[in-house]
Write a protein that binds this DNA or RNA. Structure first.
Lengths: 248, 248
DNA sequence: CGGGTTATTGATGGTGTTCAAGGGGTGTGG
DNA sequence: CCACACCCCTTGAACACCATCAATAACCCG
């Protein structure tokens, strides 16, 4: 399937500073300091900008599909995305969720290893793959940064293997909730109220559970006053009991 | 715990070409062309060799422990190693197995994310971390190669998430057996007889199952003539039925 | 308000775990 | 060379956790 072919995403040109929204240019980019781009000095960022194209997508759209040839690499600048791997019989594994600052295409491989679908409206910065690769060859510090990000992803993946392989249902949900909360804390500050833009089915498919099991865990926690359900999220009431579930 | 502190591993000096075994120097190294070192030309390899120290360990020894400060990076030159993550209550997840040519320490992080224990007698090439990092800064093509290897590991980790999250017991064992067989094929040629240096418990801990379940799957396959048990391994009799179990 | 999607809750059941016992191989020491 | 211990693996029986099935409830958006 073609990359972003069926998507009504608006490609915002970058050359001019057309101020359709904030952060249209790298200098004003909200995620610049937490993403790959942080490796580049002010005088180098312009070079990257030439390869960049801003995109904005509504919720529930594919950025790319597993198995497609990789033409674009993406930095998410707002919104959230689910990264998933589908089996032919309908079973699905969500290998991760991407948030602002996350880079999709870390691996620099020729085909995407998973599909990416927006959970919310998303803005992203798309880089031409060939141009980005050429730039990597010229800027070893960018490559170093990319490698650090990839390493971090690998560590997260290995930690998630422990969750999938050896944790029980309640522990899995706790690990997910705490991990998600902590990631959000890095980009928008810590808060007891944790937005959950993904649905119960997405959480289930991330944790190797069913939607019913996830729902029951949240329901039990609500009864036990560990969390309080709020629209599109939860409020953590008893941090300690939650943390205890994944004590290691 | 200290890195390889309690280990009776023999460190073979590398400066002289003392021929205690084959492959003592990079030029004769059996895995040179399939490992990180393949990024380096003949005239660069000597530089890396100055950072290297050959080690040889018996079976059942730790190369390093999860959480230890990373001082050494390892290339496995013979034997196999299990990489594991332990929970305090005894549950264990094996995040992977390392074979000749595999590099441990890809992430360049300051602490090991898992413990490494030899399954068989192992020979490995240990690189001083600081020296290796310095060399990476001088040789971007080495960094590129390291990144490629890390990306590959990430892809494997994400594929394993699907196995752990969404596959049933029999499919998990099939995915493991085929994956292991294919990895061995890359380094020692394809064969229907697949050595399994790890125990049933190790396989179980890799697949998120119990030893009993793994044993039952192999027993069923033996009854159905899909595999034949051989000492320390299996012989694949019905390739097609096995592949069918993980058809996607 | 109505249609569709998503989430919750309950009842039942299955896959894999747990518990328990026995088999098979290997190495050691008498 | 055999006896024995030890470890790992296998096999069986009962159980538990989570999945499945089913019905209802909440929600969203038209």
């Amino acid at each position: 399937m073609d990359e972003v072919a069926d998507v009504a995403g608006v490609a915002v040109p970058t050359a001019c500073g057309a101020p359709t929204a904030c952060g249209e240019i790298c200098e004003k980019c909200r995620v610049r300091l937490i993403t790959i781009c942080a490796a580049l000095a002010d005088d180098e960022i312009g070079e990257l900008e030439l390869l960049a194209e801003r995109r904005s997508l509504p919720a529930r759209r594919a950025l790319f599909h597993q198995g497609d040839a990789v033409n674009g690499l993406y930095t998410i600048t707002s919104g959230s995305v689910r990264l998933q791997n589908d089996l032919s019989d309908g079973r699905r594994q969500i290998v991760g969720f991407a948030l602002p600052g996350d880079f999709l295409g870390l691996a620099l491989e020729s085909r995407y290893g998973f599909s990416a679908e927006t959970l919310t409206p998303v803005t992203a910065c798309r880089f031409d793959r060939a141009g980005f690769l050429a730039m990597l060859r010229r800027k070893p510090h960018l490559l170093a940064r990319l490698h650090a990000a990839t390493s971090h992803e690998l560590a997260i993946a290995q930690a998630h293997m422990v969750v999938l392989g050896r944790r029980r249902a309640e522990e899995r949900v706790a690990a997910f909730l705490i991990g998600w909360r902590d990631r959000l804390a890095l980009i928008q500050g810590r808060s007891a109220t944790v937005p959950l833009p993904m649905g119960r089915q997405d959480i289930a498919d991330h944790l190797g559970l069913t939607i019913e099991t996830v729902s029951r865990v949240f329901a039990r926690w609500a009864r036990e006053k560990i969390v309080l359900g709020v629209p599109d999220g939860v409020r953590v009431l008893d941090e300690a009991r939650l943390a205890q579930l994944i004590a290691d």
